Simulated assay, not measured.
Amino acid sequence: MNKRIILVGALFGIIGVILGAFGAHGLEGKVSATSLDNWKTAVSYQFYHTFAILYLSTFSRAKNGLINFSFITFTLGIILFSGSLYLLATREITQLSASFLGPITPLGGLCFILGWIGLFIATIRHK
């Protein structure tokens, strides 16, 4: 197993639990229902891809470039997609101008898609 992949996955898991709890207990009543839904979406996608990253560690012995590609794109996806949604969801309390976030969220989604494609191809090629 690849220690780096497991450590990054574990870190995203820790952060996901903390942010999920913060959303449930710290944001309720302070942001709109839509913003809270955006927060929940960010946490959900962070966890889906945290589990995907941890799964990638089972391929680490293959030293497959596609597995590394998936690891990088899943990591970027969590940062860009979930990160931008966290910022968007808290605009009401942070007063953050979020116009720059518009193109960032879909780029994160594209990273997720590319990561899944990489994992798909790596699995087909794995002997």
Results as ranks from 00 to 15, higher is better:
Leu66His: 03
Phe51Pro: 00
Ser44Thr: 14
Leu88His: 04
Ile18Trp: 08
Thr94Trp: 10
Gly109Asp: 08
Arg125Asp: 03
Leu110His: 08
Glu28Asn: 13
Thr50Ser: 02
Thr50Ala: 05
Asn38Ser: 14
Thr90Asn: 06
Ala33Ser: 15
Ala98Tyr: 12
Phe12Thr: 04
Ile14Gln: 02
Tyr45Asn: 08
Leu88Ser: 06
Leu110Lys: 14
Ser35Phe: 02
Leu11Arg: 02
Thr90Pro: 00
Gly26Thr: 04
Ala33Met: 11
Trp39Val: 09
Asn38Phe: 13
Lys30Ala: 13
Lys40Phe: 06
Ile67Met: 14
Ser44Ile: 09
Phe47Pro: 01
Phe100Pro: 00
Asn2His: 09
Leu96Tyr: 10
Ala62Asn: 10
Leu114Thr: 14
Ala10Asp: 00
Leu54Arg: 03
Phe74Gln: 03
Leu101Pro: 01
Thr73Phe: 15
Ile93Lys: 12
Gly23Pro: 03
Ile5Tyr: 09
Ile117Asn: 08
Lys40Met: 14
Val8Phe: 12
Thr50His: 05
His49Ala: 04
Leu101Thr: 04
Lys40Arg: 15
Leu114Asn: 07
Phe51Arg: 01
Val43Phe: 06
Ile124His: 08
Cys111Trp: 09
Asp37Leu: 15
His49Met: 02
Thr34Arg: 13
Ile14Cys: 13
Leu76Arg: 09
Leu56Ser: 11
Ile117Phe: 10
Ala33Leu: 14
Met1Gln: 07
Ala21Arg: 10
Gly9Glu: 03
His25Thr: 04
Leu36Trp: 12
Ile78Leu: 07
Trp116Gly: 03
His25Gln: 09
His126Ala: 12
Gly83Thr: 02
Glu92Arg: 08
Ile72His: 10
Leu96Ala: 11
Gln95Ala: 15
Glu92Leu: 05
Ile15Arg: 02
Ser70Leu: 05
Thr94Gly: 09
Lys63Gly: 04
Ala10Pro: 01
Leu119Ala: 11
Gly20Glu: 07
Tyr45Ile: 05
Leu56Glu: 04
Leu107Gly: 04
Val8Ile: 15
Gly102Met: 09
Phe51Val: 11
Leu54Asp: 00
Ile117Lys: 04
Cys111Gln: 12
Leu101Cys: 08
